[in-house]
């Protein structure tokens, strides 16, 4: 067996980013992701890469914008309130088609909320989050190993699509430790050349990076082009399924909620209830096919989230009355227990 190390989720993200050749990290303190900023302040400097503790999350995302437009891999991390501040920059990056990785270690909201893990930012992450008609790719790992792996893929996906990629975890995943295999095989993508960067026009004509399209029809055309790109992202949909084939009810959950659902599934199966699980790993694009396929024989779905119903809307949209869609969630940092979920399953069946 490969050598494993015990690692915190937040740190695994940092180490994965470093392995993916992230050249610059910009952050601003906020719980529960401070250990990542602290870790990067040491590691990036040791590696002679760029680390800055910025004056705000707004500045941090704009520093990512600057680093990314030179072709360097860059990232920032924060938690919910700070991610709100980054939305301006994320929208500009989407408009300018700049790659970059943004980690959201979600906490309870709205407002200052609390610092418990939560999943209240699903809408914000999957709908674009800032102003304008755009999307970001959203990845939702559910283990420390997957955090380490997916952050590496996130940089590839950002470069592949020239688009910001959001990694959506929460306080629990960020703070927990699990064994990580640092040599784990990670999917590698075929990447286009970066023939759009600004690094001085020594060997070519000057270039510009912009999201401003004032000529009549130009912005419409640009938005159509972005739209086509978002559609293409479907080729990189990721989803985990467990025991769907014989299931009488399927749980749908992402991130930490999926972990609780896995416990609930084990518990329920011990009691003879045939429970399956679909875990979207890409939240945008959303794994429509997998869910649709399940509706062919499953007539009951239970969506479990740490909010009062966000992803459930996407599930309902896809299922479109082909099966019953139920919801169980707790807001404000409340984490359901496996027993609660099994009770809910029994109530539904």
């Amino acid at each position: 067996m490969a050598k494993r190390v015990l690692m915190k989720g937040n740190i695994a993200i940092g180490e994965g980013a470093i392995k993916a050749n992230c050249k610059a990290y910009f952050g601003y303190p906020i719980t529960p992701q401070n250990d990542l900023t602290a870790h990067m302040s040491k590691r990036m400097v040791e590696l002679d890469r760029v680390f800055i503790q910025s004056e705000s999350e707004i500045a941090a995302i704009n520093m990512v914008f600057g680093a990314a437009l030179t072709g360097a891999r860059a990232m920032t991390s924060s938690s919910s309130p700070g991610i709100s501040l980054k939305q301006e920059g994320i929208s500009y990056m989407a408009g300018c088609e700049l790659p970059g990785v943004i980690l959201n270690v979600q906490r309870g909201g709205p407002g200052l909320g609390n610092i418990s893990g939560a999943q209240g930012d699903y809408f914000q992450a999957t709908r674009g989050g800032g102003h304008g008609d755009y999307r970001t790719l959203v990845l939702a790992p559910d283990s420390v190993q997957e955090m380490y792996d997916l952050v590496q893929e996130a940089f590839d996906l950002a470069d592949k699509y020239r688009n910001p990629v959001v990694i959506l975890i929460d306080g629990v995943l960020g703070q927990m430790m699990e064994p990580v295999d640092l040599e784990h095989d990670v999917k590698k993508y075929k990447l286009p050349p970066k023939d759009w960067i600004l690094d001085g026009c020594k060997t070519r004509e000057p270039r510009s990076i912009q999201s401003l399209y004032m000529k009549e029809g130009a912005l419409e055309e640009h938005n159509w082009k972005l739209h086509e790109k978002y559609k293409k992202m479907k080729q990189d949909i990721k989803c985990e399924t467990q025991h769907v084939d014989d299931a009488e009810i399927v749980l749908v959950a992402f991130g930490i909620s999926a972990r609780v659902c896995k416990s609930a599934m084990q518990l329920a199966r011990k009691e003879g209830i045939k429970v399956g699980l679909i875990r979207p790993i890409t939240l945008f694009p959303f794994p429509e096919e997998e869910i649709l396929k399940a509706t062919e024989h499953v007539k009951k779905f239970l969506v479990v989230e740490m909010n009062l119903g966000q992803m459930v809307e996407d599930v309902k949209l896809i299922i479109n009355s082909k099966a019953d869609v139920h919801f169980y969630g707790r807001p404000g940092g409340g984490l359901s227990s496996q027993e609660e979920i099994v009770n809910e399953i029994s109530r539904i069946l």
Binding site: A68, G89, Y92
Partner: peptide
């Protein structure tokens, strides 16, 4: 201007400049 130029959001040029200059 006949050289490389980027846009930046309102008020954010110094942060964007920081990002560029630190890597180049």
């Amino acid at each position: 201007w006949n050289f490389d130029v980027t846009e930046a959001a309102h008020g954010r040029p110094p942060a964007v400049a920081t990002g560029i200059k630190r890597v180049l």
